[in-house]
C-alpha cells in the first residue's frame, strides 16, 4: 500500500543525507548516517535514548546545540547542498523548507507571545504576506489543525492551552511557512494516549492534504507501525536497519530490531503476568561504543567475528541491514 505519492517527476529525493557524523567535543554521537526522504513520505527514525536520532534530526538545519557540531557528511535538500547556503538562505530554509515540531511544545513556544502573533510573524517572514493577510491565514491554520475556537486561541499565551492544544499550535507554526519536510521529534511523547492519537491523525491528514514529507523521530514502535511508510532503526549512532514498515514489523532482520519488537509490551499479545523477552544490558554511552558491532555485547546471536569486526551494511532493494548474520542467511 503506497500512500506516499512517489516523486516520479524529478526522481531525486527531497532530502538526502550522506555519511553524517556529529560530535560533541571529541565524542561522536552520530556516526556515518545516510538516508533519503521522498516527497510525501513518512519516514520514521527509531531508536532508544543515546541512539543519536534526535541529533540527526537537529543537524539537518545546523540546530545541534553547542558544543555539538557536524564533523562529516553532506545534507542535500531539494537538490541543494545545505553547506553551500549562505546563512540568510539557511534561515529561510528553517521553517520555509523544513519545519520542526519538538517533543515538549511548552518549551518550544515563546511563553510571552500569543499564538496568533507567532503565526503572523512566520507567515510574514516566509510567505511575505501583509499583516491583514497573515492574520487571516493564521486563523485558517488554527482551524486546519482543529484547534477549537481559533479566533479566541489567536490571543492566547501558550500556558493557557492544554498540552494537546499547544502541540496543535506547534504543528500550525511548523507548517505555516510552507515547508516540504516536517521533522517531528517525539511529537506525542509528552501527550496522553487519546490526545496522541488525535495528533498522529492530524499529521497523516496534513501529509495527505499538503503532500508533506515527514521525518518522525520516535522511540515508539507502535507509532511507527501506525503512521510511517518506511523506518530507519538507529543504535549507538548508526542506522542498523532500514525497511518498509510492513517488512520491519513482519520480517525484521537485525537482532536489535527483533529484540525491540519482542520486548515492546504492546507486541506480546499474551496472558497477564507473563514475562517479556528482555534485552540484557543497556545502550552503550557515546564514546564507549564497542569495537566490533555495537550491539554485539547485548546480542543473543553474537559470535566471535561480531566483537572484532564492524559489520558492513548490506543494501538491497527497499532496505539494508548491518549484520553479519543477515548476509549469511541470504546466501
Amino acid at each position: 500500500m503506497s500512500r506516499a505519492p512517489s516523486d516520479a517527476s524529478s526522481g531525486a529525493p527531497l532530502l538526502s543525507v550522506r555519511s553524517l557524523a556529529v560530535a560533541f567535543g571529541d565524542t561522536r554521537v552520530v556516526d556515518g548516517v545516510s538516508f533519503d526522504v521522498a516527497r510525501g513520505e513518512v519516514v520514521a527514525l527509531v531508536g532508544e535514548s543515546g541512539s543519536g536520532k534526535t541529533v540527526t534530526g537537529l543537524s539537518l538545519l545546523d540546530l545541534v546545540p553547542e558544543p555539538g557540531r557536524r564533523v562529516a557528511g553532506e545534507i542535500v535538500f531539494e537538490g541543494r547542498n545545505v553547506d553551500a547556503l549562505p546563512e540568510r538562505d539557511l534561515r529561510r530554509l528553517r521553517g520555509g523548507g523544513i519545519g520542526f515540531v519538538f517533543q515538549e511544545p511548552g518549551a518550544a513556544l515563546d511563553p510571552v507571545r500569543t499564538i496568533g502573533s507567532e503565526l503572523i510573524a512566520v507567515l510574514r517572514r516566509h510567505r511575505g504576506l501583509s499583516r491583514a493577510e497573515a492574520r487571516a491565514e493564521a486563523l485558517s491554520w488554527l482551524s486546519r489543525v482543529a484547534l477549537p475556537d481559533p479566533e479566541a486561541r489567536m490571543g492566547d499565551l501558550p500556558h493557557r492551552m492544554s498540552g494537546g492544544m499547544r502541540q496543535r499550535a506547534m504543528v500550525a507554526l511548523a507548517l505555516a511557512g510552507g515547508p516540504a519536510l516536517l521533522v517531528a521529534d517525539e511529537p506525542t511523547t509528552a501527550l496522553d494516549v487519546t490526545i496522541q492519537a488525535q495528533i498522529l491523525e492530524l499529521l497523516l491528514r496534513l501529509r495527505d492534504e499538503l503532500g508533506l514529507a515527514v521525518l518522525l523521530v520516535t522511540h515508539d514502535l507502535g507509532i511507527v507501525a501506525e503512521v510511517a511508510d518506511r523506518a530507519l532503526v538507529m543504535y549507538a549512532g548508526e542506522i542498523v536497519e532500514e525497511a518498509s514498515v510492513e517488512r520491519l514489523l513482519g520480517a525484521p532482520e537485525h537482532p536489535y530490531t527483533k529484540a525491540l519488537l519482542a520486548s515492546s509490551p504492546d507486541a506480546a499479545e499474551g496472558a497477564e503476568r507473563a514475562k517479556l523477552p528482555a534485552i540484557g544490558g543497556a545502550v552503550p554511552e557515546p564514546g564507549a561504543w564497542p569495537r566490533g558491532c555495537r550491539f554485539a555485547p547485548r546480542c543473543p546471536s553474537a559470535f566471535d567475528r561480531c566483537t572484532v569486526e564492524h559489520p558492513a551494511t548490506i543494501t538491497r532493494p527497499g532496505g539494508r541491514v548491518a549484520c553479519f548474520l543477515a548476509g549469511e542467511e541470504r546466501s
Binding site: 494516549v193 496522541q196 492519537a197 491523525e201 507502535g222 501506525e226 514489523l249 519488537l261 504492546d266 507486541a267
Partner: peptide, 20 residues
C-alpha cells in the same frame, strides 16, 4: 477509547480508527 488510542503494531486502517 484508551485501548483504541494505543498505537498498535496491528497496522493502520484498523477499525479502531473510527472510534478514535
Amino acid at each position: 477509547l484508551l485501548l483504541a488510542s494505543r498505537p498498535g503494531l496491528a497496522r493502520r486502517g484498523d477499525p479502531d480508527a473510527s472510534l478514535r
